[in-house]
Design a protein around this nucleic acid. Structure first.
Lengths: 342, 342
DNA sequence: ATGAAAGCGCTAACAG
DNA sequence: CTGTTAGCGCTTTCAT
């Protein structure tokens, strides 16, 4: 029953001209006569013609679609990156097809096949928590399919990336905690697997060093499952004979969970314990006390990654050296940390 | 430089068989000899073959892709719906291509063209705030392209929909406020354009009626730009000679904005004013006081809408009558509303 | 059980 | 400036 979509052939037939002329007219090529173009465009409109990108894609071997894989869209950070990706892609003439890995390596592999089958022109990916090998991605690199990592990346893979300066963000966060008089700063870290977690750990360590404070391994935790592990890990920290007076958290979700535990224990934030997040989720400014955190330019990250991959897609040469874009973070001081002495 | 992707022709050549046999083997058709299939599959693996969905799509006129348009991915409600869509679609063998309208009618129209050009098999859409005509969608219906609305729908359009029982959700929310002793309940509504806002208004009105409370137009506001308008509208309400003792809000974002204003004015929640949200955003349980709200099954909505559209795509007949799926809400009682008298 | 050939809708030589 | 034609990678009759 479904009325078949009009094709350039339909237009050509009606107008008694050839399909190539129609094709040219529609693509606004210079060589076609003005009035012919006008006729074609009118007929296209009359027939409610929509160019068939599938046919185009097959012919010119380019789908103008970019694939995106994120661990989960419901995390605000990622939905914000995705928003940046989608808008930028659309503005530059590309569509986006997206998948979630749900933090599963297997799903991530399946996603890649799906997207490859759909012949996306390039792939934007932020790795799952479980991913610690890049074999599934090397195939793409070998086939010369543009690939750009964002946020959760491999440190030593030969590919383009856009990340946030996690080291610097962590360094200045911890530096700030120390400047406000905290002496024992703990790190409630993320999965060991994720390089961003380790970079933040390095920033933490170096800030301690800079302030001549000895590193105490007891003050380090790895929340492999993010906020799910934040509860036991926070409890462990609070039970320490020499309890921390500040906790730097892997992200805002972990921080918020931790905040609840601390409050439940009857401790005051920031008087007893200063709490620092990472990301600046919208919620961070709304809880009580509002959360001091390291803001990441998530929308910008999506925008930058998209520009980078489209550049790669549209450049003729196979791209000699990978690009690396590092975005800067901003320390957002709110009320979960002690005030600086005036 | 880019090594061309392997095709069934490459496999056929290597194996000295015909492309049709390869095609059959790969699609697991019964008529192909067992060992032939084995050979083909091995060769496919060896050549790192990925079936070309673009070519398939052109040939069988089906892309196995569904298009999705939402006002904005960064709203948690929508990212959650999208998550449900993506997972369900993938599980059923479909990809999702998505766009944001950014609450703009023009962008929404452009999105539709984009998605139609990509020959999505069906379209899932939640309307922009600005959209008040369905002309841009009638084309799809005419062409018999499956279309399912979710959440923000037209009341009187001849198409399938999945929504939440907004009327009932609002009714029981207001009913609860009244049961806890509130006498003057205000409604901080959403854009007049959105049917969901009006359904909630009707639920509000009927709950008043049920409790023999006269409707006072002064207690109604329309926040055309959602939380941006929540501030002036809340202030207006608070300045009323006969101030409300409860505010039912269009959604949690509006409620949270309103909460800030109320607190700034030095009023106590819930003692002076009870506050009720709608949606149950993750933030609702974390703010102070935690927000009583009407929970919407967002992930379920995405799942239901996806199932519905795939059913429509895969059914042979043109679908006589549209489907309507109404999901139920749940009142989540927290601390921003007075307690029920025991 | 396999193969040959047509064709999905489009673009791009090539020819005029 | 326009038309003819081949072919992108695949599925699908129709033969064999």
């Amino acid at each position: 029953m479904s009325k078949r979509e009009a094709t350039i052939r339909d237009i050509a037939l009606k107008l008694n001209i050839s399909v190539s002329t129609v094709s040219r007219a529609i693509r606004d090529m210079p060589e076609v006569k003005k009035e012919t173009r006008k006729l074609v465009l009118e007929m296209a409109k009359a027939l409610d013609y929509e160019p068939n990108k599938i046919a185009q894609g097959l012919r010119i071997k380019k789908t103008n679609t970019i694939g995106v894989i994120v661990p989960a869209v419901t995390l605000h950070f990622f939905s914000s990156v995705i928003s940046g990706i989608q808008e930028t892609a659309n503005r530059l003439g590309y569509n986006v097809m997206f998948c979630q890995s749900n933090e599963s390596f297997e799903t991530e592999k399946a996603n890649i096949h799906t997207l490859l089958s759909s012949r996306v022109d390039g792939l934007l990916i932020s790795l799952s928590r479980e991913t610690n090998t890049s074999d599934h991605l090397m195939g793409m690199l070998r086939k010369n399919i543009p690939l750009v990592f964002f946020d959760r990346v491999f440190d030593n893979i030969n590919a383009s990336k856009v990340v946030v300066d996690d080291y610097e963000g962590a360094f200045s966060a911890v530096q700030y905690l120390l400047k406000t008089g905290c002496k024992r700063v703990a790190y409630l870290g993320g999965p060991k697997n994720l390089s961003i977690s380790n970079h933040r750990l390095n920033g933490y360590k170096d800030a301690l060093k800079e302030n001549k404070i000895e590193f105490d391994p007891e003050l380090i935790s790895h929340c492999e499952h993010m906020e799910e592990d934040a509860e036991p890990e926070t409890l462990r920290m609070l039970a320490l004979s020499n309890r921390p007076d500040a906790i730097f958290c892997f992200n805002d979700h972990v921080a918020i969970k931790s905040m609840q535990i601390i409050k439940n224990k009857g401790l005051k934030i920031p008087d007893d314990i200063s709490l620092m997040g990472f990301s600046n989720e919208p919620i961070a400014g709304l809880i009580e006390p509002s959360l001091t955190t390291v803001a990441q330019p998530s929308y910008e990250m999506g925008k930058a990654a998209t520009k980078m991959i489209i550049e790669q897609i549209e450049s003729k040469e196979p791209l000699e050296n990978e690009k690396l874009k590092i975005l800067q973070t901003t320390l957002l001081i709110r009320n979960s940390t002690r005030k600086m002495k005036a």
